[in-house]
């Protein structure tokens, strides 16, 4: 049953990477949306009509910063697809990813 061992070994790595990237990036994205909404201020509605809330530039900035992190994550995914297509792979030995031949 050597295959079962190899499969389980691969499976938990995939699960870990999947959780970090597949759940982590959408969570950053959601935080970015929350931050943007906060940055735009809360509108209040009363008898006099709709009053736009005060803008919070910090929220807008943090929101776009978080989006940028997500975009970098997506670019990493793209790099991986292209690199492996050309017979290379990504190495994470230096923490930051580098392209090395397979």
């Amino acid at each position: 049953m050597h295959n079962l061992g190899f499969a389980l070994d691969g499976a938990w790595r995939v699960l870990l990477a999947g959780l970090v990237l597949g759940a982590g990036l959408p969570v950053l994205f959601a935080l970015g949306i929350r931050s943007l909404a906060w940055g735009a201020g809360e509108a209040s509605v009363d008898a006099t009509g709709v009053t736009p809330g005060a803008k919070r530039p910090l929220g807008t900035a943090v929101g776009y910063l978080l989006f940028a992190v997500v975009v970098i994550g997506v670019l990493l995914g793209l790099t991986f697809i292209v690199a492996s297509g050309f017979g290379n792979k990504l190495s994470f030995e230096n923490i930051y990813p580098t392209i090395v031949p397979k």
Binding site: A7, G10, A11, R13, V14, A17, G18, V20, L21, G22, A23, L25, P26, F29, A30, G77, F80, I81, S84, K89, L90
Partner: peptide, 25 residues
Amino acid sequence: PPQGTAAQSGAAAVILASSQLGFAL
């Protein structure tokens, strides 16, 4: 839409991670 984002990001991450690790899915 939030579910769609989570589902598709999860799928993309699992597919790419598994092909990086040589685990054919």
